[in-house]
Design a protein around this nucleic acid. Structure first.
Length: 282
DNA sequence: GACCAGGTGTCCG
DNA sequence: CGGACACCTGGT
């Protein structure tokens, strides 16, 4: 049950059904590693705000949320973070998808592509390479505790490029980053020195492909990481990151070759459906 | 205590 | 270009 002492009651702040937004699925399809579930509520950090969220489904099917923030603030933050202004159904017709994608999409209904801070996405996915999810989560947490700001004792913000530079390679080395520490320090320098402008890449004038090409100039950023940053940090929803799991799907269900263009401008959403599906079957 | 993980850089043909 | 190989380190 929702703890009414701590939360401000359940409100219909987002006006969504579980098919449009499912927190469990959205936070467990591997796009973010900073949401923790404790009991029936999630705690996450967006920018410098700690947000606690608990779902409650009303009898009419709409989902309400109990939160620690004011309803207005929570709504403003989440509308953007979950891009709830976008109706996925306008861009993807589940019925018209190929067999495997359709199964994945039906199974994954309620996943939202998160609009994360691009810098945070960059570092998170640099850390994710050749790592498993529990370790990615704990490593990102260590990084935030060490170099982020304490937010009212409730959590830590994601460290700025400046903080990472200040820490230097020595400061990064005891955080369990492994060989990725130099990638991260280098990325911090490039962002700080404006050799790369991540926010400029968010512009709708920059295509996903262009953003990926730009991101891959960074040391340690290959196609997989670049696609993840473009999709989850820059709002390039047509990007389709291919990791080992997606590659397995392509080999097993698409004869080793997939035509992503058929998924159109929301290919990244299909990718998330597939990733979530493959990790939850068998 | 091995063994391996949501990849990428480097080297070599 | 494409394939082989090394790479830090904590979780299971």
């Amino acid at each position: 049950m929702i703890n009414v002492e701590e939360f401000k009651g359940v409100t219909r702040i987002l006006g969504v059904t579980k098919k449009e937004l499912d927190l469990d699925k959205t936070f467990n399809c591997g796009q973010s590693f900073r949401w923790k579930k404790q009991g029936n509520y999630y705690t996450g950090i967006i920018g410098d705000k700690v947000i606690k969220l608990a779902e409650h489904t009303f009898s009419d099917g709409e989902v309400g949320y109990a939160t620690t923030l004011s309803a207005e603030e929570c709504r403003a933050i989440l509308l953007n973070y979950l891009s709830l202004n976008i109706d996925y159904n306008e861009y993807i017709n589940i019925e018209s998808l190929d067999d495997f994608a359709k199964k994945a999409a039906v199974f994954g209904q309620g996943i939202r592509i998160l609009k994360q801070d691009p810098w945070e996405a960059l570092i998170t996915f640099l850390i994710s390479q050749r790592n498993n999810i529990p370790k990615i989560t704990s490593t990102v947490e260590r990084l935030c505790v060490a170099l982020g700001n304490d937010i009212n004792g409730e959590g830590y913000s994601f460290p700025t490029p400046e903080k990472v530079i200040q820490a230097g390679i020595d400061g990064l080395q005891n955080l369990g980053l492994g060989y990725r520490d130099q990638y991260i320090l280098n990325a911090a320098k490039w962002v700080y020195e404006r050799r790369i402008d991540l926010h400029k890449l968010e512009s709708f004038k920059i295509s996903g492909e262009e953003a990926v090409t730009e991101l891959m100039q960074l040391y340690g950023v290959g196609p997989k990481v670049a696609n993840c940053v473009a999709l989850f940090g820059l709002g390039k929803y047509d990007m389709f990151p291919i990791d080992i799991w997606i590659q397995r799907i392509i080999d097993q269900y698409y004869d080793g070759n997939i035509d992503i263009s058929k998924y159109g401008c929301m290919a990244g959403l299909v990718q998330q459906y597939m990733f979530y599906y493959i990790k939850h079957i068998e």
